[in-house]
Amino acid sequence: MNKSAMCLLLSSSFLASCSVNVDQYEDSDNNFDLQSYFDGKLIAWGVIQNLNDKVTRKFCVELDGQWENKKGLLVEKFYFDDGEISYRNWHLTETTPNHFTGTAEDVVGSAIGQQQGMAFNLQYTLKLPVDDTTYEVAMDDWMYQIDEYRIVNKTSISKLSVNVANVTIFFDKQLPLNTCLDFNNR
């Protein structure tokens, strides 16, 4: 085995050993109820950062969720700072207590999610268009409920097990709700 391959193997092993498991949040103070929080309208703001932690895009997203019999539809409308508007419709199902699967039009296969205590982790493969090419990237979403109104979401985006970007999102469900309509005029 050459030096480069050995370094990559050791790095991968080190990263795997440092990974966070959602069960670590079992004893946290509040219990994040995904179905309750994402039921109705809410708004979120976020940034996308490159490998050097430079913010490359800002966005606002309006969400509307509806749940019935452990099945939910979460409609998302993204407003990016460059004028782009995009949409994602999550179809989520609680398969067993605190375990979820989900699909969306730009997700390959099914997303797998688990909730424990204040945390929710969702992992999936996303079709990410960049210029004239669409890449399949691994998404590792971690949501942490701060209080009954606010959630912070940290997402790592990877390609071939190498982190290529990060996303940070702040959700707010406190009334009165804002909208994203003025986002690009700020």
Rank of each mutant, 00 (worst) to 15 (best):
M1V: 13
M1R: 11
S4H: 05
S4D: 12
A5G: 05
C7V: 14
L8H: 07
L8M: 12
L9K: 12
L9A: 15
S11N: 10
S12Y: 10
S12V: 09
L15G: 13
L15K: 14
C18H: 09
C18I: 11
S19P: 00
N21M: 09
N21H: 14
N21K: 14
V22Y: 00
V22H: 01
D23I: 06
D23H: 08
E26N: 08
E26L: 11
D27K: 15
S28I: 06
N30S: 15
F32W: 08
F32L: 11
D33E: 10
L34E: 01
Q35H: 01
Q35E: 11
Y37V: 11
Y37I: 09
G40P: 09
K41W: 02
K41H: 12
I43W: 01
A44I: 00
W45N: 12
V47H: 03
I48K: 01
N52S: 15
N52F: 13
D53Q: 13
D53K: 14
K54A: 13
V55R: 09
V55E: 14
T56R: 08
T56E: 14
K58C: 02
F59V: 01
F59P: 02
C60N: 02
C60E: 01
E62Q: 12
E62N: 11
L63Y: 12
D64N: 15
G65D: 08
W67A: 01
N69F: 07
N69L: 09
K70E: 15
K71S: 13
G72M: 01
L73M: 07
L74P: 06
V75F: 07
E76W: 04
K77R: 15
F78T: 07
Y79I: 07
F80M: 10
D82A: 01
D82Y: 03
D82G: 02
G83S: 06
G83L: 08
E84T: 15
I85R: 07
S86C: 10
S86P: 05
Y87Q: 15
N89H: 13
W90Y: 13
W90P: 09
H91W: 00
L92A: 03
T93H: 06
T93D: 05
T93W: 02
T96L: 11
T96F: 09
P97C: 03
F100M: 04
F100N: 03
T103S: 10
A104R: 08
E105W: 03
E105Y: 05
S110A: 05
S110I: 05
G117H: 06
M118F: 07
A119L: 05
F120W: 11
F120T: 08
N121R: 08
Q123K: 12
T125M: 15
P129C: 07
P129S: 07
V130E: 00
D132F: 02
D132V: 02
T134D: 04
E136I: 13
E136T: 15
A138S: 14
W142N: 05
M143L: 12
Y144H: 06
D147Y: 06
E148R: 12
R150E: 13
N153A: 02
T155Y: 05
T155Q: 06
S156V: 14
I157K: 08
S158A: 14
S158Y: 05
L160Q: 11
S161G: 06
V162W: 11
N163D: 10
V164A: 06
V164W: 03
V164G: 06
V164F: 03
N166T: 12
N166R: 13
F170L: 14
K173W: 00
L177T: 00
T179S: 15
C180A: 01
L181Y: 05
D182L: 04
D182P: 00
N184Y: 01
N185M: 02
